[in-house]
């Protein structure tokens, strides 16, 4: 059976791609951010995942306003990154795991999450940057991918509670997959930031730190917020926190924090990183 070994939640700010391309990891502006990642890279080497299931929001690379799913699941043989107009180098394609994708889709629809299925799908910086940050020296990606998108572009947004439920349903589906796979869940985006209007630059450190603490032991506390609450506290694009909430939802066992990092600012954003280990209930019982 597939096992969920843990989750990594990380920001996905486009300028990170430029900093990597220019080797600015040791630059004083960037160092406090990049210094957070070696521990997460080591952890991935320790837990040796076969597949990443990534919750993120597409920013208009794969979807446009013509057809915009609230929740979408990739079921493609491979996922390509492409020019988003930011001048970030594109990444090598990531192989999919179609059997797991379809199993997750079936599990989600069974659980009344009527998702959109994407057999062709481009992945934007919300996937490519976490891969570049977490496997900086990879010649070939060491994992396959199941991408899951959450709409944070056009209202109505799904509620944080619904996103937690989505993550829980994904977690149950993964754990019922009849193949010995080690799975790591990603949640990308955030933390507090607002890119638009005269309130641009909004940052809320106390709120972010509270969210990072609650994410470990009490994600239900975060699921109680409304979209309005999250925009008020975390900024218009701080709503991307729902990707973290969904990723946490997929961890169904005993969860402990391995590592975290938090840094203000990267560009307009408070950057966060967490590594959470999941001890599946079945393993805990056997121990």
């Amino acid at each position: 059976m597939a096992t969920i070994v843990g989750a990594i939640t990380t920001s996905h700010i486009p300028s990170i791609g430029k900093a990597i391309a220019r080797n600015l990891q040791q630059d004083p502006y960037w160092k406090p951010f990049f210094d957070g990642y070696p521990r997460a890279q080591e952890w991935l080497k320790e837990v040796r995942p076969d597949v990443v299931v990534a919750f993120y929001n597409d920013h208009g690379l794969n979807y446009f306003l013509d057809a915009l799913p609230t929740f979408g699941v990739g079921a493609a043989p491979e996922y390509r990154n492409a020019d988003e107009g930011w001048g970030i180098p594109t990444l090598a394609p990531i192989l999919g795991h179609q059997d797991l994708s379809w199993h997750v889709i079936e599990g989600l629809v069974d659980a009344d999450f009527d998702v959109t299925t994407c057999q062709q799908m481009l992945v934007d910086h919300a996937v490519s940057l976490p891969f570049a940050l977490l496997w900086p020296d990879a010649e070939a990606w060491p994992v396959r991918l199941v991408p899951i998108t959450i709409n944070t572009l056009q209202y109505p947004f799904p509620s944080p509670a619904r996103c937690l439920g989505l993550g829980q349903a994904v977690g149950r589906a993964i754990e019922s997959f009849d193949e010995d796979l080690r799975v790591v869940v990603f949640g990308t985006g955030g933390l507090s930031h607002q890119l638009d209007g005269t309130r641009a630059g909004h940052i809320n450190k106390p709120f972010d730190l509270m969210c990072m603490e609650k994410l470990v032991d009490d994600p239900q506390a975060l699921a109680r917020y409304s979209a309005l609450d999250l925009v008020r506290e975390a900024g218009a694009q701080g709503f991307e926190l729902v990707n973290w909430i969904a990723a946490r939802g997929a961890l169904t066992g005993a969860v402990s924090q391995v590592h975290s990092n938090y840094h203000i600012p990267i560009s307009n954003t408070a950057a966060g990183l967490m590594v959470l280990e999941n001890r599946p209930a079945a393993m805990a019982r056997a121990a």
């Binding site: 507090s192 909004h202 008020r232």
Partner: peptide, 14 residues
């Protein structure tokens, strides 16, 4: 402003 911690939340929340 961003390097100093971003736009202050006080007065900007609502």
């Amino acid at each position: 402003m961003m390097v100093a911690g971003g736009r202050p939340i006080r007065g900007n929340r609502s």
